[in-house]
Amino acid sequence: MIAMEKRTPLVALFFAGIIAILLVLVFEKDERPFLVWHGILLLVLCYLPGMGIALLFDPHAKKAKEEYLKINFYEEKK
C-alpha cells in the first residue's frame, strides 16, 4: 500500500469527478453520447490523474520523492 493521508483518496475522487465532467462537456458529441458504463469507465480512469493531483497536496508523496532523490539507483554494486 502507498502511504498517504486519509483524505487523499477522497480528494482524488473529487478531482476525478471534475476531470470526467469537463471531458464529457468538451468531447462528447450529441450524435454519439457516452453510455452509462462509458461514464463509469471514464470516472475510473480519471481517478488516476485525480490521485496525482491529490498526491501533490500529500506530504507522504513529497517526502517519498525527496528520499528517493537522495539515492543513486545506478551506482556500481561492490
Binding site: 502507498i2 502511504a3 480512469l45 480519471c46 481517478y47 488516476l48 490523474p49 485525480g50 490521485m51 496525482g52 493531483i53 491529490a54 498526491l55 501533490l56 500529500d58 507522504h60 508523496a61 513529497k62 517519498a64 520523492k65 528517493y68
Partner: peptide
C-alpha cells in the same frame, strides 16, 4: 508513491 507519475501516466490513459 509519487504524485506526478499518477498525474501524467493517468492522464495518458
Amino acid at each position: 508513491e509519487q504524485a506526478w507519475t499518477w498525474l501524467l501516466e493517468g492522464s495518458a490513459f
